[in-house]
Amino acid sequence: MDTTAAVLRSADSPLTLETLHIDDLRPHEVLVRIVGSGICHTDLGVIAGQEAGQSPIVLGHEGSGVVDAVGAEVTTVAPGDHVVLSYNFCDDCDNCSRGLPMHCRHFVGLNLVGARLDGTTALSAGDEPVRGHFFGQSSWAAHAVANEQNCVKVSHDLPLELLGPLGCGIQTGAGAVLNTLHPEPGSSIVIFGVGSVGLAALLGAVAAECSTIIAVDIQQSRLQKATKLGATHTINSATEDVVARVLEITGGRGAQYCVDCIALPAVLRSALECLQSPGVCATVGFQGMSNEITLDQGHLLFGRTLVGVIEGDAVPADFVIRMIELYQAGRFPFDELIDTFPFERINDALDAVHRGDVTKAVLTFGTPPESDEQ
């Protein structure tokens, strides 16, 4: 069958909407009709840093939609199911076998290359192969070829077009708090960078009932959004001494927890300096695979911990559902982070993200499926 997809052919030109052919599904693959797909900074990084041999490729890895067809050996989803698509994993290596799919031994090959592990792709433009398995989905398209293991089945009574970011960006921020840090009710936390991931972390802190939630950013509009969503204090790091203000807010002790969504050396140092002893900083920011940072080992020696987090330490089949349950209970209003754009305006959406006009842009595809309890 054929589908319409946004194809990246070069970093210096807009994405092009093209008609692509989709090959027959393999035994554990799933064809999903996309209803919504978020724009993540990982997508932007690939566009900006595209190298020879990486294109043409269809990006997008925060998809949600309706299952149209399944491979011969798929057992967990069926045509008509509503699903959120998350990162891909092999479900067979030692880490996957012990419940750590975010540390799958094949994570890079399954998620960042844009092809199956054997190097093939389900998409093509005439005789030209098009990479179509970015994070096991390539969901900037009307249809995505996903895999049984990275489909999370969800209820039909939910706003399906908005759920895609739960599979990556929102999962990353909220998971860093709820899965990695596990803050106790009444505890204190500082969140460095309140874009979409940082605000998701803030929502996680609110859901965890932290009593002191400090948002740090250089944009006042983002800090205002953070206050609206539950921050008890805000610090503009462009004009204020972050460490001094955190110490002031916490009565000289420092915060018990931090989330670093930036990963710049100065920011990460400040995050550690803001901690009391003991205290834990979870870093989720990404500044490239090579990002050397110099730290004062003394900050760690006296009981402070720095931990790296990927995909919010989340098992999507469990954590996506947990976030949805919190949302339904009125405790996780992730939809307040989202602005939608018709898929045909994908380049406008990308420009809006680059300008910082939106927190989380989500591309929508036609009329959402009718909601009905199931």
Rank of each mutant, 00 (worst) to 15 (best):
L166C: 08
L166S: 06
L166K: 01
C168R: 05
C168Y: 08
G169Q: 04
G169M: 04
G169A: 14
I170W: 09
I170P: 06
Q171L: 14
T172F: 12
T172K: 12
T172N: 11
A174L: 09
A174S: 14
V177P: 03
V177C: 03
N179K: 07
T180C: 15
L181Y: 09
L181I: 12
L181V: 10
H182G: 11
P183L: 12
P185Q: 05
P185S: 05
G186Y: 09
G186W: 08
G186P: 09
S187T: 14
V190E: 04
V190T: 14
I191M: 11
I191P: 04
F192R: 05
F192I: 03
F192H: 15
V194H: 05
G195N: 07
G195L: 04
S196P: 02
G198M: 02
L199Q: 08
A200M: 06
A201Q: 02
L202V: 00
L202I: 02
L203G: 01
V206T: 13
V206Q: 08
A207N: 13
A207R: 13
C210A: 14
C210W: 09
C210K: 08
S211V: 11
S211Y: 06
S211W: 00
S211D: 15
T212K: 12
I213M: 13
I214S: 10
I214W: 10
I214N: 10
I214E: 07
